[in-house]
C-alpha cells in the first residue's frame, strides 16, 4: 500500500514537472520571433534560385572569376568541410555559401559593412557530392563561382 502511494505521488510529481518543462519549452520558442532579420523563406527554399530570390532579391547570377572558393577536392567527412569564399570586388554588400546537393541548399549568408573585406571562411556540412557555390552581391548585382567537392561520407544523414 505505502509503496503504491509513493508511486502515485511520484507519478503526479513527474507529470507536473513535465507540464512545467513544456511551458518552459514554449517560452523558449518565443524569442524566435525576435530574430525578424533571419530570412526564413531563403533558408526553407529547396532550389538555389528560390533561395537567392528570397535572400538577395534576384535569382540571376553572373559567373565571375573575381570570386575564389577554397574548398577541398575530396571531403572525407561531409560533416565538416572547410570553405573559404574570397573576392577582390569593390562594394560587396553580402556573400552567401550554397551547397547545391544539400536538402537545404543555402548554408550561410553574410552581410558585410563598409570596412569588412570580401573574405569569409567557415565549415559546412555536405550531404553528398556536389558543387559549392559562392555568391557575392556587389553594387546590386549578383556574381557567383562554384567548385565541385566530392564527399566520401555524407554529413547530413544520421
Amino acid at each position: 500500500m505505502s509503496t503504491d502511494m509513493k508511486r502515485r505521488i511520484f507519478l503526479k510529481g513527474s507529470l507536473a514537472a513535465g507540464a512545467v518543462s513544456v511551458a518552459a519549452g514554449a517560452g523558449l520558442l518565443m524569442p524566435q520571433q525576435v530574430l525578424a532579420a533571419w530570412p526564413k523563406a531563403a533558408f526553407e527554399a529547396k532550389s538555389i534560385p528560390d533561395a537567392l530570390t528570397a535572400l538577395m532579391g534576384s535569382g540571376d547570377t553572373t559567373t565571375s572569376d573575381k570570386i575564389k572558393i577554397k574548398a577541398p577536392d575530396i571531403a572525407e567527412n561531409g560533416a565538416v568541410v572547410p570553405i573559404t569564399v574570397e573576392s577582390s570586388m569593390e562594394g560587396i554588400e553580402s556573400m552567401a555559401i550554397i551547397a547545391s546537393a544539400n536538402p537545404v541548399p543555402l548554408i550561410a549568408s553574410f552581410s558585410l559593412s563598409g570596412s569588412a573585406k570580401g573574405f569569409v571562411s567557415t565549415r559546412i556540412k555536405m550531404g553528398k557530392t556536389g558543387d559549392v557555390i559562392g555568391v557575392v552581391k556587389a553594387g546590386g548585382k549578383l556574381y557567383s563561382a562554384s567548385k565541385g567537392v566530392k564527399v566520401t561520407i555524407g554529413g547530413c544523414g544520421g
Binding site: F43, V80, V104, A108, F110, S111, L112, T122, I124, K125
Partner: peptide, 10 residues
C-alpha cells in the same frame, strides 16, 4: 559582419 546561418553549418 552579420551572418545568417542554416543548420548546414558544421
Amino acid at each position: 559582419l552579420t551572418a545568417n546561418w542554416s543548420g548546414g553549418v558544421s
